[in-house]
Design a binder for these strands. Structure first.
Length: 675
RNA sequence: GGGACCGUAGCUCAGCCUGGUUGGAGCGCUCGGCUCAUAACCGAGUGGUCAAGGGUUCAAAUCCCUUCGGUCCCA
């Protein structure tokens, strides 16, 4: 049976471009899955687009004095550019502010109404008499009734509580500061509460991971009806109501359907139920189509409860098989924040690094459902010591050697291979199975680790076989053939993660994206996996993290230190202090440590002996001005080598940006103990 | 305020559901070897009061409770 797969990615909101967090939680994982399924010959499409409605966009438009459409178009284009740069492929990419979507959403709504899931109710809403309009939640600010802090609409900035805007103390219209009044308005409601039993059955039969199911259940137990009307102009008009548009969470997910429709009639094969009685058998898990929604963890409940609820109520469509919710990305250990400019935009990042490196790092550094930290140092480390040193080096050494000896990959009869060759080829096959299992379970990190293990086996084999000492040409061919098989497997399995790099490797090999060896001539091997140099990381950090506020950084640093220690100030006893031997020392010689940016080598006199110590004060002191200075030295520190130079103690100094050596206030003899 | 998830080697993570051989992997670090290769490779070694406290049990990283720290959600 040929299974169909429909992958969707969360619709990007058009009030900004994409940052690394979007890439990590949603788009890269979906694209990896898409590329992998395609590689396996599956029928798979990836559908996505942008979410163009909602209040934040109208706020941005008002602030900039332009039309909402202008904001939407600008960011729609930027988001698509970013996705292209990340090599994320779509079969269809749309906008919710498009005719096909508006039409689809309205039809969907009318079907809900026809099925009896829509009703009207009069409610009270804030209305600004001066602006002459109803105020959406975000247009009202005031004081939080719980903590007295400043609250924006439905959320308190201080205590983080969720609020009803009508609970606010001293509410005001953010546009004109006028105190809004409550006015009656008739809203449409979606009868979500009627769907509890169906939803419970659906979630149970779905392939969602346990933690998603648990969250869904806790919501399903306390469902209430959904207010789906908004008294604003920007949005999808509710067909049977004047001056109202649909709540974005009602219409946006319908985009998954409308954007699939852009592909033409095939959309029906993915979305429309084959058997309209299917749900009656309590079997919501369709066998012939897998619909997988890739999303960020913040919108899990919308995709595991509200959206399936809409689909059940509508009755015409297949339900999602699973919801893959990606964890958040922190930047250098801190939450990303676009308002605080603590963020790395995709567009900036790809100016400096191959997007393949980003794809690799973001998938290998943490499992998908967990939060992941992006730090430039960690990024460099993982790329250089893992990807390049293991995978990059193996593929390169194998190709270079084959090229030098035969100008091609030698093809031999596998039957005649020696046991150790066959064993390695078997490992390749085993790896294909393991990687397949991991990818199909969305364990991308484990999949990559298995590829690394295979490359390690390859390196191991190469080392043991010592092809550079092998005189027998036939044997050499067998060894290099075996290596080529490994390279081919690595390339194949790595392709979904790193499409650019693997295609370059295949080009050097004159090979196709499969597991065969054709024995074609090799091109002159070039280094495909290039190293990330220290200078490059330093430069990029300065460019991309420069918006960082120095105070924030310091605060964060202190916070991290506190967390490490468990408390802000751990108390020690006098006995603990007695363990530390501090003495007054005099600097006799000072010189720079070559190859180091921060270190000076000092020879100091501590009274009864001379010590060599290395201090990180280069740039803060000239070697010449140090000679003769009396300083404080920690004498009983375990010796350590810094940049290859032994240090027998530690010079005490204070400060971060300005560094000052500690010196005795009065002249005391060299070697004096400090206590 | 309510709910969900997370806290395991210097770093990033497995293991926990279904308690029971010496708690694993990659990186790092130390030592030794090698040179085909991007100062890359190979081998050996190093390293953990499994957040803290309490409980259940013959036995707990694993089950239960509390506390602390982190994250997300509240239509």
């Amino acid at each position: 049976m040929s299974e169909k797969y429909l992958l969707t990615t969360a619709l990007a909101y058009t009030n900004g471009p994409l940052h690394l967090g979007h890439a990590r939680s949603t788009y890269i994982p979906a694209d990896i899955m898409k590329k992998y399924l395609k590689l396996k010959g599956k029928d798979v499409i990836h559908v996505g687009g942008t979410d163009n409605h909602g209040v934040p966009i109208t706020l941005t438009a008002e602030k900039e004095g332009v039309k909402p459409e202008d904001i939407v178009n600008k960011y729609h284009n930027e988001i698509k550019r970013d996705l292209d740069n990340l090599n994320v492929e779509f079969d269809s990419y749309g906008k919710t502010h498009s005719d096909i979507h508006i039409e689809t959403a309205q039809e969907f709504y009318l079907k809900l109404k026809e099925n009896g899931y829509i009703y009207e109710k009069e409610i009270e809403q804030f209305y600004c008499p001066k602006c002459d309009r109803f105020l959406a939640d975000r247009y009202v600010e005031g004081t939080c009734p719980f903590c007295g802090g400043e609250a924006r609409g439905d959320h308190c900035e201080v205590c983080g509580r969720h609020l009803e805007p009508t609970e606010l103390i001293n509410p005001y219209c953010i546009n004109c500061n006028t105190t809004p009044e409550l006015r009656k308005t008739t809203h449409r409601f979606f009868k979500l509460s009627a769907l509890s039993d169906d939803l419970r059955k659906y979630v149970e039969s779905s392939d969602m991971p346990e933690h998603v199911k648990n969250m869904a259940y806790s919501w399903i137990n306390e469902l209430h009806d959904w207010d789906i009307s908004r008294d604003i102009k920007w949005g999808v008009p509710i067909p049977d109501s004047e001056n109202q548009v649909m709540y974005v969470w009602l219409e946006a997910p319908i985009g998954y359907i409308s954007f699939t429709k852009q592909l033409g009639d095939v959309w029906r094969d993915y979305w429309l139920k084959k058997d309209s009685n299917e749900n009656e058998n309590n079997n919501y898990n369709t066998k012939d189509v897998k619909i997988w929604h890739f999303i960020g963890k913040d919108i899990t409940v919308h995709h595991s409860v509200f959206w399936p609820g809409m689909l059940i109520a509508n009755g015409e469509y297949n339900l999602p098989s699973s919801v893959i919710s990606g964890g958040y990305l922190t930047l250098e250990g801190r939450k990303m924040s676009t308002s605080k400019k603590w963020v790395v935009w995709v567009d900036d990042f790809v100016k400096y690094f191959d997007s393949d490196y980003l794809r690799y790092f973001l998938m290998v550094n943490a499992p998908l459902n967990r939060d992941c930290d992006f730090s430039f140092d960690e990024f460099q480390k993982r790329i250089n010591t893992e990807l390049i040193a293991i995978i990059g080096n193996f593929t390169h050494r194998a190709l270079v050697f084959s090229h030098r000896k035969f100008k091609a990959i030698p093809v031999v009869d596998e039957e005649n291979l020696k046991d150790e060759d066959k064993e390695l080829i078997n490992k390749c096959k085993e790896t294909v199975e393991k990687v397949d299992k991991h990818i199909m379970e969305f364990n991308f990190k484990d999949a990559i680790m298995d590829i690394i293990h295979l490359a390690k086996e390859g390196n191991n084999y190469f080392q043991k076989m010592e092809p550079w000492t092998v005189e027998d040409e036939n044997r050499l061919k067998e060894i290099l053939y075996t290596c080529a098989v490994v390279v081919k497997h690595i390339t194949y399995l790595l392709y979904p993660f790193m499409p650019n790099k693997t295609m370059k490797l295949l080009d050097l090999m004159n090979e196709e994206l499969d597991l065969e060896i054709r024995g074609n001539d090799l091109k002159k091997p070039k280094v495909v996996f290039t190293k990330i140099e220290d200078d490059q990381i330093k430069m990029v950090k300065e460019k991309l993290l420069k918006s960082e506020d120095a105070n924030e950084k310091r605060k964060e640093k202190n916070k991290i230190k506190r967390n490490e220690k468990g408390d802000s100030m751990d108390l020690i006893s006098i006995d603990d202090f007695a363990k530390i031997e501090l003495r007054v020392a005099q600097i006799l010689e000072a010189e720079e440590v070559p190859k180091s940016k921060k270190l000076l080598k000092l020879i100091v006199d501590i009274g009864d002996e001379k010590r060599q110590v290395v201090a990180g004060i280069k740039g803060h002191y000239e070697p010449a001005e140090l000679v003769g200075k009396k300083i404080v030295l920690l004498c009983n520190l375990k010796p350590a080598k810094l940049c290859g130079v032994e240090s027998q103690g530690m010079v005490l100094a204070a400060g971060d940006e300005v560094v000052a050596l500690l010196t005795p206030d009065k002249d005391v003899p060299v070697g004096s103990k400090i206590c």
